[in-house]
Design a protein around this nucleic acid. Structure first.
Lengths: 340, 340
DNA sequence: AATGTCTTTCAAAGCGCTTTGGGAAGAGTG
DNA sequence: CACTCTTCCCAAAGCGCTTTGAAAGACATT
């Protein structure tokens, strides 16, 4: 069923039917109702490709998704997506996801934009410098970064959390508890969120005249397994750390297992603070020793990004262009005074 | 840059340029190269919405994604998606995801199909009976279910794993080890995968003259937290179970924590078998007591579904229409003889 | 020179929608 | 009564692409 068939059946022109359906004022209430009813009955749904072609709008937001044979699903991604979806469903938006191998991301983005399938795009996994930012600037289609490049000045719309601040605060807490030997379980090095987390920790340490030992820093994918292995390595270090900063609860899961396996007691022999993205599957408060965390909901970020992008497309420009969210420090049992 | 501009600049008709770009034989090699080069230089990318409108094809597969304010991200979903993406990226396909509240899924599916945005759709979370199957049958667009409805005869394309067989085998193993009191930590009841897993367990138990006590069965979202709470409840039961069947490693994570907390030793005081979807974040072999599992990679299923759908769209009909994958039983340390 | 066959190109129609620019009634005004 | 306004509707153009049907030119065959 398309517009023509529907209007033929109603004995009206396509113009009138289209207007009735889209709420334009130039049709009488009587015909509008007649049209609406017929659309309902016949199950008419407009063809979005045609709509998009005609209007340039399609109520869709695009994103490119990293894909590689060795790259598993990322729970952070689906958590974020669920937030985005929550907002999208309210406004009848949908997503277009273009998968791309990591080395072809910029090209995939180009194709996605030129495809005429999306009204706006969202970018994650920010690196520095990020070639996608330059691309977007020349592209006239609305966009929004989750994260931001390094430096203090940013001339593009973004939503980021204060990663540096979070890890600075977490480190400060551990320093106050008397810890001196720190380890860092971080995300992949090239991402700015990981850089900033490291900077935050280093800054606090520097203020106490301390440094991060390079052997006690791990940069990698944030999975349970990696957390376990890295922690085992840290614990074998001659100067075993008494405090661990951890970029995700998934990493922490593995780290805690290694700690237990070594016969150490979390919160007494060794303290740990993890960053908590509030993954629905894995809650830090329900670890056997509840985890002290810096918390910032990824899902909320997704929802907010959806909200801003959609508002922007609807012509509401009253939402901020740049936002920096603070993470909450939540103290639980995994942190305690440094052992004597 | 669009086709018209490109052809004007080349002094050719749109027809010729389009044909040159799409590899039709009716253009001379010389002009084809000229066109290709110009397209490269100008960065011309075809507008997919227009292509889709003109051809009815757009190299895209659609799916509806459940979304609700209280529904967090599902790591199973992203694991599956990464498999799908792996295949999609090879063939330059993309996805269109329509978010929908659980009660509006059929409608969202209708809109998605009518949208003219997708060439095929993929359906997950099969229930019984599943209204989407009837819808799809009347819709002429290719589709593929991940999972299948109940019963033995199915007249639609699907890929499923033998959930019943997996849990039957797992239960058999536990029975052989002398276990008599079983608990089941299952997925949400209305999904057929959960039904079949339960049936599998019950069948094996029935053969030994045993039954599942209703109080020792939990149907719910498969998260760590739920696993923990349910297991605590099971352990408080006057007739404490000695064997637990678990529908996911995420559930198992919580269950194991409850077991440890109760001071019981996994694999000795209590045995546990989990179904392993091979989530990249959480590996059963790296639990402190490695988990015995029934394994079937969700990512592989995603990739296979992508492969079949794309082959179908490309006119290759040599792939099977219906597939049932066996899960592997992998015995590790979480299963042992029933305590005396 | 006339005819037929390829090869290479093009103009125009059409995919399903929105939107512009009118036009035909009916309502209000002097 | 003629006149302007509204109100309600329509025909047609256009979004960027593919595809049909035809034409023009090159070449070989009678």
């Amino acid at each position: 069923m398309n517009l023509k068939q529907l209007s033929d059946r109603l004995g009206l022109s396509q113009t009138t039917v289209s207007r009735a359906l889209n709420g334009y004022p130039e049709v009488s209430e009587a015909t509008r109702e007649r049209v609406l009813k017929a659309a309902q009955q016949t199950g008419y749904k407009p063809n979005k490709a045609a709509q998009r072609l005609a209007t340039g709008k399609a109520k869709s937001i695009g994103l490119v998704m990293q894909s590689a044979p060795d790259l598993g699903g990322d729970p952070h991604f689906s958590e974020f997506l669920s937030g985005l979806a929550e907002e999208a469903v309210k406004h009848d938006f949908h997503f277009v996801m273009a998968p791309a191998s990591p080395d072809d991301e910029v090209n995939a983005l180009k194709r996605l934009i030129a495809s005429g399938y999306v009204d706006a795009v969202f970018l994650a996994h920010v690196v520095d410098p990020d070639p996608r930012v330059d691309l977007m600037r020349s592209c006239s289609i609305p966009y929004l970064l989750h994260g931001r490049t390094m430096g203090d000045v940013h001339d593009y719309p973004y939503l980021d959390i204060d990663n540096e601040g979070a890890f600075y605060t977490a480190t400060k807490l551990l320093l106050q508890l008397g810890h001196k030997r720190f380890a860092l379980l971080n995300g992949i090095e090239r991402f700015t969120f990981a850089m900033r987390r490291k900077t935050g920790a280093e800054k606090a340490l520097a203020e106490a005249g301390l440094k991060l030992a390079p052997e006690l820093v791990q940069h990698s994918v944030m999975s349970d397994q990696v957390g376990f292995r890295a922690m085992e390595r840290f614990l074998a270090h001659p100067e075993r750390p008494t405090a661990v900063l951890c970029a995700s609860t998934a990493l922490a899961l593995g780290a805690v297992r290694a700690i237990n396996k070594a016969g150490l007691k979390l919160g007494r022999d060794i303290s740990l603070i993890a960053h908590d993205d509030v993954l629905s599957m894995l809650r830090p408060e329900s670890f056997s020793v509840p985890l002290t965390t810096t918390r910032s909901s990824l899902r909320a970020a997704g929802a907010r990004i959806g909200q801003r992008l959609i508002a922007r497309l609807d012509g509401n420009a009253d939402l901020p262009e740049q936002e920096l969210w603070e993470a909450e420090l939540i103290v639980r049992a995994s942190t305690g005074p440094a052992p004597a």
